[in-house]
Amino acid sequence: MTLLAVSSLTKRYVSGTRPVTALDDVSLTLDRGQTLGLAGVSGSGKSTLARILLRLMPADGGMVRFEADDWLSLSGRDLRRRRARMQMVFQDVLGAFNPRATVGSVLDDPLRIHSPLKERDRRTEIAALLDRVGLQAALATRSIRDVSGGQRQRVAIARAIATRPSLIVLDEAVSALDVSVRETILRLLVELQQERGIAYLFISHDLAVLRAVSHRIAVMDAGRIVECGPAGDVIERPRSDAARSLVAAVPRLVIRG
């Protein structure tokens, strides 16, 4: 069942002398409970698409249907209410959080805004969320600055699932993590998807990571989707130049003679 349908999305940035077409007639669909991997070299427009879907900035043209809504036309109270359904996890940078926040307050914010829970029940819910992402409840009082990068990404995931979304947009969410930590986070994401039926739009320039979690993969190049198909097909039989060069660029563990 289609959860998200993006049609003919366009976006131009006008800064300095020449305008940049960051999205050029982008269309895609994503089914409930599935993962669409979005690959592409730097500057191909991946984050621009993410920011527009999350309503962090407007598109120039095109249309997005998300659940039952004409998503880009929502505003005011409707938008605030429905936002709970689409959440995000970005690359681990401290800038994604208020630096003075504690782990507990990071999780309390979405619950206060989007759930009817009273304070005591929110505390119970926060403990349950931390537990679900593999963190101890005692971490709630810790400053977000004083936890490791891997723990911070777990907090970001807990924050994202707090409002029971049907879609999470992940933009380079595991790129800054060490491989061992990355693997545990990828497994956690797949588990949560099985358990809760969440769909992911999973953005990364690393096809090996996308292969691990994606049902389908779309490849962007210069603002356009140049290829989209089942993950295995795109990786084993890339049809576009952009997909071919992404496949070729993944380092292989080679044992040279």
Binding site: T35, V179, S180, R182, E183, L186, R187, V190, L207, A208, V209, R211, A212, V213, S214, H215, A231, G232, I235, V247, V250, P251, R252, L253, I255, R256, G257
Partner: peptide, 29 residues
């Protein structure tokens, strides 16, 4: 290089190699 990759001497190196994802690694789905 070949020796470390083919016959890693430490558990840590083995784990590092094992957690490295390549295009032929298994999907987690």
């Amino acid at each position: 290089t070949a020796q470390v990759l083919e016959r890693p001497q430490s558990d840590y190196t083995r784990a590092l190699i094992a957690s490295h994802r390549t295009l032929s690694s298994r999907s987690l789905l």
